[in-house]
Design a protein around this nucleic acid. Sequence first.
DNA 1: GGAGCCATGTAAGTAGTTACATGATTGA
DNA 2: TCAATCATGTAACTACTTACATGGCTCC
Lengths: 197, 197
Amino acid sequence: VAISGRYNDELPKLTPTGWTVLGFLSICPRNGYQVHQAVQRSVGHFWGVSYGQLYPQLKVLQEQGFITPSDATTDGGRQTSWQLTERGAEVLDRWLRIEPAPPQRRDEGMVKLMFADHAGPDAMLSLIQQRRTEAGRRRDLAEAVIPDPHGPDQASRGPNAVLATSLVRAHTLALANAELAWCDQAETMLAEQGQMS
Amino acid sequence: VAISGRYNDELPKLTPTGWTVLGFLSICPRNGYQVHQAVQRSVGHFWGVSYGQLYPQLKVLQEQGFITPSDATTDGGRQTSWQLTERGAEVLDRWLRIEPAPPQRRDEGMVKLMFADHAGPDAMLSLIQQRRTEAGRRRDLAEAVIPDPHGPDQASRGPNAVLATSLVRAHTLALANAELAWCDQAETMLAEQGQMS
DNA sequence: GGAGCCATGTAAGTAGTTACATGATTGA
DNA sequence: TCAATCATGTAACTACTTACATGGCTCC
């Protein structure tokens, strides 16, 4: 069934994390540790990358020829800084154009709230307050990140790169604020219910 | 090291999905298929339960003595309706009181947006529009669910049960609306950027 | 000379999805 | 009688996390 030499549009199989790593290396060369940091800082709350995934995936990316040790690895060579190859940039571009997997959420706190009436109003209140703290922290973190057009993450990228970063930040803020507003609403409703009984 | 007879506060090990199933059975007796439906309908967009998890977990729950075939299994016995045992209600209550796992998100679309400047403004726009459709669908679904105080899901539960359902619904709506608002904002910003270049 | 960060990895375990398989019941 | 829905399950696979292990560098 093979139509030889015509597999240009078949994407190599990488885990989602692998693609993410490739994406972060497309911004600037980094070692594994720095990739981890960058992920945490910028997309940490909707995409995690643990070391248990990171280093094996770096190896895979290299084997596929998508990344190569950077010229800038001036240090003794202990830590290796990785950069995209031309082929890496190519496949990344193609990956970006195919439809993303639908977002997944696993929100145990919300599930608990669904049944928390069994445990009484105090349990419900506690669940709401936990959300508030978490959402507040998320908002503060996102607010602290001011996209610096001259930082290593933005330099030598087009103006759209700054835009992309801003959009992601705005998204985090929008959702965090919505969550906080919901917390207020929820507490009010809970209090009202309490008065009636 | 065992202090005999004093392990009252150790919770049995179930997967998060197992607890969720137990929670849904605490509302009213159901068979596996119905649990799946109920989960989809009410918490589907932040908690999924696949059959590959569901049926094995039902078996575990039974082995632990947390659920038992319902008296209401009037049918020939082909499909079994499950209900909580007293012990099941007890452990559920304790599970509700311990702190929920932090929410997990895996949002590939957002990650792509982060790098989508490589692929051009059209790719960015497409990612935003996909989010819009998805968020719209989510909002419409949540809006359609009017908590019915007399339905099988609410009957014989206290007033707080209706409250809990409403809170979850409000949460879904709040986040979906925030997402939609962000989409508008994002498209505007993208258009502005386009004019400048 | 010790605390804390930088840096790289591996092994075992967990939680979950997908695809497959089967068959009964119901309504058009 | 055929399609759709109801109903129950298993096997293989995937992606990810946690815990562990190691060691260098830096600043106080």
